[in-house]
């Protein structure tokens, strides 16, 4: 799906990500783990175009997408969520989701002014997509609820739905289970499996090891911006470099 070659990002003199090469494999759950400050979110930002890499290449299905803007990458089928999703609290959940499919529509100002049939058709499509995405994440019953009134776990699901409404091939999830309880975490993991079963490739950052180990097909470990290990959960668990990085960071953190 996505291939990363020697990717690097420097901020001034600091290397947040350096020389990372990896592959995100189609139809699998790919996870990225690492201690705090390991460069995981920066890595995501580079993949999704929020930040531009200072070196290296990103290929999406063989096509070079390095240096494209985030919106262009989204149009090519890569969608992402953020650690916190800012919703418009004064509107309903459904209203928040309709814009998700906007990138697949073409109506512009002229359509709006003349009230074109294309605009009507596309608005209906966006609405349908929003409904479908809500149904997929199991929230159709709260469609009319104000976004201000939904729970943390529901917010996470709405963020998924928003990403899904863009019709992505690859979804990047930044801490999808951050701040929710273990029971809800299991539900979100189930949802991620369902996404993969529906042909969407998933790549996620997560701190909850239990979830990662049971969910991921492949894991990449970052430390100080560098890739220190990659493999199946079993391989990662047994990797001495990984154990070192986590123990080391724990010591440093105290």
């Amino acid at each position: 799906m996505l291939e990363v070659r020697n990717l690097g990002k420097r901020f001034g003199g600091l290397a947040a990500v350096s020389d990372v090469s990896t592959k995100i494999e189609t139809g699998k759950v790919n996870a990225i783990i690492g201690p705090n400050g390991a460069g995981k979110t920066t890595f995501f930002n580079l993949l999704s175009g929020v930040q531009k890499p200072t070196s290296g290449q990103i290929l999406l299905q063989g096509r070079d997408i390095t240096g494209l803007r985030a919106d262009q990458i989204a149009v090519l089928g890569v969608s992402r969520t953020f650690q916190t999703t800012v919703l418009f609290n004064q509107a309903s959940v459904l209203d928040n989701l309709i814009v998700g499919h906007r990138l697949r529509t073409k109506s512009g100002l002229l359509d709006v002014l003349i009230g074109s049939s294309r605009l009507k058709r596309e608005e209906q499509i966006c609405r349908d997509k929003a409904h479908a995405a809500l149904e997929f994440v199991g929230l159709e019953k709260i469609a009319t609820r104000l976004a201000a009134d939904i729970s943390q776990e529901e917010r996470k699901r709405v963020a998924f739905a928003l990403a899904l409404a863009t019709d992505p091939q690859l979804v990047l999830l930044d801490e999808p289970a951050g701040g929710v309880n273990p029971e809800e975490t299991e539900g979100l993991a189930e949802l991620i499996r369902k996404m993969v079963a529906n042909g969407i490739t998933v790549c996620l950052i997560e701190h909850k090891m239990n979830m990662i180990m049971s969910l991921a097909d492949r894991i990449m470990v970052l430390n100080y911006g560098e890739k220190i290990a990659e493999g199946t959960p079993a391989e990662i668990r047994a990797n001495p470099a990984v154990i070192d990085a986590y123990l080391g960071s724990e010591h440093a953190g105290v």
Binding site: S48, G49, V50, R69, A70, D71, A74, V75, S79, R80, F82, T85, V86, L87, F88, D95, I98, V99, G100, R102, L103, T105, S107, G108, L109, D111, V112, L119, E122, E123, C126, L162, T166
Partner: peptide, 22 residues
Amino acid sequence: SLLGRTFMAIRNGDDLAESLGI
């Protein structure tokens, strides 16, 4: 319209809007 929703998505946050292909 969809155009207005696009504007509102930008108001909610540049990053999220951009990641939605806007």
